[in-house]
C-alpha cells in the first residue's frame, strides 16, 4: 500500500491532484466551521447586500472575500457549502451505482448463459447513450430534486461498473482458484464475494475515480441547466448558473469563483484517475 502510494506520488501532477483533492475535501467537511455564514439559513441572508464585489465588508463585520451572490449570500460560504453538496451527491450516487454494477456483474459472470446475455445487453443499450442524455431523460420523467438527481446519476452510471467488473471477472473466473472453490462446495455467493470481487479490484478502482468525476460534472450540468438541485441547496453548478446572468454586467465573481472551484475539483479527481490508469497499464 505504501509502495503503491510512493509510486503514485512519483508523478508531480498526480501528487498535486491528491493534495488539492484532500484540501477540497477538508474544506467541504469543515464548511460549517470555515464559513462566515450559513447560506441555507434564510434569516442570516440580506437581499440588500446582494452582488457585493469581493473584499467588501459585511454588515456583520467580516469581509466577503469572494463578494456576495444575487441572493445576498456570502459567496465564499456558498462555495464551501456548494462544494459539500457537489461532493456528497457525487459520492452517494457513485456508491449506489457501484453496488448495483458490482452485483449485476457478479451475477452475470457467475451464472453466465442467459442471465449474462440479458444483463450485458442491458449494459450495452445503456452505454450506447451518453450519460448526460440518460440523466436528462430520467430527470425529465422523475422530476427534479436531490433524490431524483441522485437516482438519475446512479442509473446513468451503473453500467460502466458492471461492464468493467464483468470483463475483469471473466478473466478471473477461468483461473484455477475459482474451480477449486467450486469443488470445495462453497456457496455461490461466497465464491462471488470472497474470491471474484477482490481479484477484480484494480481496474474497478480506476473506473470509480473517473465516475466520481463524471458524477460531479453531471450534477453540475443538471443544476446549471436548472433541472437538478433546488435553489435552496445551491451546488457549484447552481451557483455558476445564478451568477451567469450578471456576467454581461461585468460582475464576474458570481460565476467565476464557483467555476474555478469546480475546475479544481474535477481536475484533481481526474489527475488521480489518470495516474491510477497509467499504473495499471503494464507499459506505463
Amino acid at each position: 500500500m505504501l509502495a503503491y502510494l510512493k509510486r503514485f506520488l512519483a508523478l508531480p501532477t498526480a501528487a498535486l491532484g491528491l493534495v488539492a483533492l484532500v484540501l477540497l475535501a477538508l474544506a467541504a467537511i469543515f464548511a460549517p466551521q470555515l464559513a462566515n455564514q450559513n447560506p441555507y439559513d434564510l434569516a442570516s441572508i440580506d437581499i440588500l447586500s446582494s452582488r457585493l464585489p469581493p473584499g467588501t465588508a459585511s454588515v456583520d463585520g467580516y469581509i466577503h472575500w469572494l463578494g456576495t451572490d444575487d441572493q445576498g449570500r456570502d459567496l465564499l460560504s456558498a462555495v464551501l457549502y456548494g462544494l459539500r453538496v457537489s461532493l456528497t451527491v457525487a459520492l452517494v450516487a457513485t456508491s449506489i451505482a457501484l453496488v448495483i454494477g458490482v452485483v449485476a456483474a457478479l451475477f452475470a459472470s457467475y451464472f453466465g448463459g442467459k442471465v449474462d446475455a440479458i444483463l450485458m445487453r442491458l449494459v450495452d443499450l445503456q452505454l450506447a447513450f451518453p450519460s448526460i442524455l440518460t440523466a436528462l431523460v430520467l430527470v425529465a420523467l422523475l422530476g427534479t430534486g436531490l433524490d431524483k438527481v441522485i437516482i438519475a446519476i446512479t442509473l446513468s452510471q451503473w453500467a460502466y461498473f458492471a461492464r468493467t467488473l464483468r470483463s475483469a471477472a471473466m478473466v478471473e473466473r477461468t483461473k484455477e482458484y475459482i474451480d477449486a472453490a467450486r469443488t470445495l462446495k462453497f456457496s455461490s455467493s461466497r465464491i462471488m464475494f470472497r474470491h471474484l470481487l477482490p481479484n477484480s479490484v484494480a481496474p474497478l478502482a480506476v473506473v470509480i475515480v473517473v465516475e466520481i468525476a463524471s458524477a460531479i460534472s453531471l450534477e453540475a450540468t443538471l443544476s446549471f441547466l436548472g433541472v437538478g438541485l433546488p435553489i435552496t441547496e445551491p451546488s457549484l453548478g447552481l451557483l455558476i448558473s445564478n451568477g451567469y446572468s450578471y456576467m454581461l454586467a461585468q460582475q464576474y465573481w458570481l460565476s467565476v469563483y464557483p467555476g474555478l472551484v469546480l475546475l479544481l475539483l474535477l481536475l484533481s479527481v481526474n489527475l488521480i484517475g489518470e495516474r491510477m490508469r497509467q499504473m495499471n497499464n503494464p507499459w506505463g
Binding site: 468525476a213 460534472s217 453531471l218 453540475a220 450540468t221 446549471f224 441547466l225 453548478g237 455558476i240 451567469y244 456576467m247 454581461l248 461585468q250 464576474y252 460565476s255 467565476v256 467555476g259 469546480l262 475546475l263 474535477l266 481536475l267 479527481v269 481526474n270 489527475l271 489518470e274
Partner: peptide, 28 residues
C-alpha cells in the same frame, strides 16, 4: 485531459467571457 475533465457548460462560459464580454468580437 483538462478538456475531458470539464463539463461543457464550463467551457461555454469561459468562451463567452473571453470572446464576447472581454474581447467583444463574437456574439453571446
Amino acid at each position: 485531459m483538462v478538456v475531458l475533465s470539464l463539463p461543457s457548460f464550463w467551457t461555454a462560459l469561459a468562451l463567452i467571457i473571453v470572446f464576447s464580454i472581454q474581447a467583444r468580437v463574437l456574439p453571446t
